[in-house]
Design a protein around this nucleic acid. Structure first.
Lengths: 164, 164
DNA sequence: GATTTTATGTCAGCCATGTTGACCAATAAT
DNA sequence: ATTATTGGTCAACATGGCTGACATAAAATC
């Protein structure tokens, strides 16, 4: 394909621009997670624990199954992290009322406090970035991230929100 | 703070919106990396190898130091990954001409081919997302991600580009 | 020229967090 | 009563972070 042809493409579809997107996502994710990570490491927890705290905080009373399909890890991986959080008193389990095999998950007040502390830091970073940018940029940011998702991630989360 | 006061804030600064941003970033990063990860695992490599291939491809002839400051990992971690890539013939080293302590890094043709294959997949995902969105959304996406970075990440990368 | 600093590598070991496979218990569904 | 499903647990392994200790070569400095 000649240069004349390729110059007809939208600028944002040029390889150079696409690669810039890849890099920005890498750098932003790395920087975004670093603050919470260092707090977590001080109390012997990791990013995986944070994810559990975050989603159990959001979908209080969710089942282990629900959490597994959000995180997309194996139940053995989750089990290790979840057991630790329960042992340390951040999360409590409650047997399901309709299906007694289910374990419904809740944050304790200790868990809530930690979740709030971590999420606040991350929200502050977002608030700052959003302020530096503006409503239209924020809309574009959300639109593109949504379009980057696997198709069935969207459906999945919609149903999760309905349940919560 | 009363509801009346808080409703004066820009909508994009509401906790709910900020949390949506956090979640979108998590889901998008997870989905974005999953395709390349599964190709890598077929040939016994991981995401860490991919990062090295990507940046050595971009900044051909870069030093180990350059790479360390982009990845922000320890030299021991990098060493493991880099040694493997060299042993398998994806990357080659060349003693620096001005400073002979330096190892300048280059992709071999095998490394180039793999890098291209992986990056193409990720570029396709971005191209798709950008097409579904449009130029203004793409601009917003880049703006917000840039604003999410640590301050010194930006400076750092600008100088890297000048050197490359 | 001798000393110090820098760039890089290597060895050893630890930790967090993914993975598979095997197996068990409780309960729901047939 | 039997079978399928949900969830938990144990064991073992891989990846990719980390620290600490130490070696070497070369550059920079005194």
């Amino acid at each position: 394909m000649a240069d004349i042809k390729s110059s007809q493409k939208a600028l944002f579809l040029r390889k150079e621009t696409l690669r810039r997107g890849i890099e920005l996502l890498f750098y932003a994710y790395r920087d975004f997670t670093s603050e919470a990570d260092s707090i977590l490491s001080e109390i012997g927890l990791g990013r995986a624990h944070h994810r559990v705290l975050y989603f159990v905080g959001k979908y209080s009373g969710m089942t282990v199954s629900d959490l597994l399909s959000i995180l997309r890890i194996t139940k053995q991986s989750l089990s290790r992290v979840l057991s630790h959080l329960i042992a340390e008193g951040y999360v409590r389990q409650q047997i399901g009322d309709t299906d007694k095999r289910q374990r419904l998950l809740f944050l304790t007040s200790k868990g809530s406090a930690l979740e709030a502390r971590l999420t606040d830091i991350q929200c502050k970073r977002f608030a700052n970035a959003y302020l530096q940018s503006g409503a239209s940029d924020v809309a574009g940011f959300e639109q593109v991230l949504n379009a980057l998702l696997d198709e069935h991630t969207n459906h999945h989360n919609k149903s999760k929100i309905e349940n919560g």
